[in-house]
């Protein structure tokens, strides 16, 4: 049995907006083992990026509530002083590849200076920081002298490699990848996924891989968590989720994914993702759920009471959990 590296318990993050409170992440718990990759899959507005921001404690100013606990190797990190988190945890223990960050590279600062900045702020010496940056560039398949170049001299795929190099530079345990290949072409995407696999094996990294794409998730995921409207609806080993999806939303999502090599009839989930300001009562998926429509005994249950997390029998070593009244 491998060790639990990250233990996330009942975390919540709400935003205040002019229209009301947005419950972007609402009571989510999961564990991440050492060396494990957990893919968090959800559509836009499911709260998956907010969850990523919660884990590295970078969030927007309009946050009205942050609650719950996150333990990294047994130590609570969500409520520790920001100064301590910045010095000891961010970059060093938990690093992040934020969404579309390759476009956030500063165009007038050399790659090397941008890469070493967080290390210098943490008190690493200048020469050592530069060496760490060059080592990191090398391990993502880029030349060491790239530190002297500017972002506009690089292609999209190279910029994304620089961002990945930055994330692993300080040898973190956990790397959070938020849509690391969005806006890249398919072949470049495949090259980046190959790189992420290689880094994972080489450095025994744990990834939290945030994506909307179930096919892409299977490129890295040992385990998969499915989010819907701010809630975790299903989590389990990749084999269980892909071959035995149990939550009606997961089932709908999987049958809507086009496949190239196999023939299957595609279907779709009618309706739209609900607003997180005023989400449906009970199970947030019930207005779109085909089972709720068909089965009378679910009336008064799914639409009123929040579903419990039920453990299903699974093949993988990770527990297969589903938040659905069908299995109670």
């Amino acid at each position: 049995m491998s060790m639990v590296l990250l233990d996330v318990r009942n975390v919540k993050l709400y935003y205040t907006t002019t229209k009301g409170i947005v419950k972007a992440v609402d009571n989510i718990s999961f564990e991440l083992d050492e060396g494990e990759t957990l893919a968090i899959v959800g559509e836009s507005g499911s709260g998956k990026s907010t969850l990523a921001k919660l884990l590295v404690r970078v969030w927007e100013r309009n946050v009205s509530l942050v609650d719950g606990e996150i333990y990294l190797e047994g130590k609570e990190i969500l409520h520790m002083p920001e100064e301590e988190f910045r010095r000891e945890i961010r970059w060093k223990r938990i690093a992040m590849v934020p969404q579309a960050s390759m476009n956030a590279l500063n165009p007038v600062i050399k790659i090397g200076d941008q890469m070493t900045e967080p290390l210098l702020l943490q008190g690493t010496g200048k020469d050592e920081a530069l060496k760490m940056a060059m080592d990191a560039l090398e391990s993502v398949g880029l030349p060491r002298d790239l530190v002297n170049r500017y972002p506009h001299q690089l292609s999209g795929g190279m910029k994304q490699r620089v961002i990945i190099a930055m994330s692993i530079m300080a040898h973190p345990k956990v790397v959070i990848l938020d849509e690391p290949t969005s806006a890249l072409d398919v072949i470049t995407q495949a090259n980046i996924m190959n790189l992420l696999k290689k880094l994972k094996w080489e450095y025994k990294l744990s990834y939290i891989f945030i994506t909307h794409d179930l096919s892409l998730a299977s490129e890295l995921a040992d385990s998969v968590a499915i989010m819907y409207a701010g809630k975790l609806v299903e989590i389990g080993g990749a084999e269980d989720i892909y071959t035995n999806p149990s939550h009606p939303y997961t089932q709908g999502l999987i049958s809507s994914v086009p496949t190239l090599r196999t023939d299957k009839t595609l279907s779709f989930i009618p309706g739209e993702v609900p607003s997180l300001i005023n989400p449906p009562s009970g199970c947030r998926f019930h207005p779109r759920c085909p089972f709720y429509k068909d089965r009378d005994y679910l009336k008064g249950l799914c639409d009123e009471k929040e579903p419990p997390m039920v453990e299903l029998e699974g093949k993988a070593s990770r527990k297969h959990l589903v938040a659905c009244w069908l299995y109670k």
């Binding site: 292609s155 398919v186 072949i187 090259n191 696999k197 290689k198 299977s218 080993g237 084999e239 892909y242």
Partner: peptide, 26 residues
């Protein structure tokens, strides 16, 4: 060949293999 090889289908065994795709960019 590279373009088609690069496209993943949802399959949990994908994580165990490397994709043979062309290096570089257009």
């Amino acid at each position: 060949q590279s373009l088609i090889e690069a496209i993943p289908d949802p399959d949990p065994s994908n994580r165990l293999r490397e994709r043979k795709v062309a290096p570089g960019e257009p």
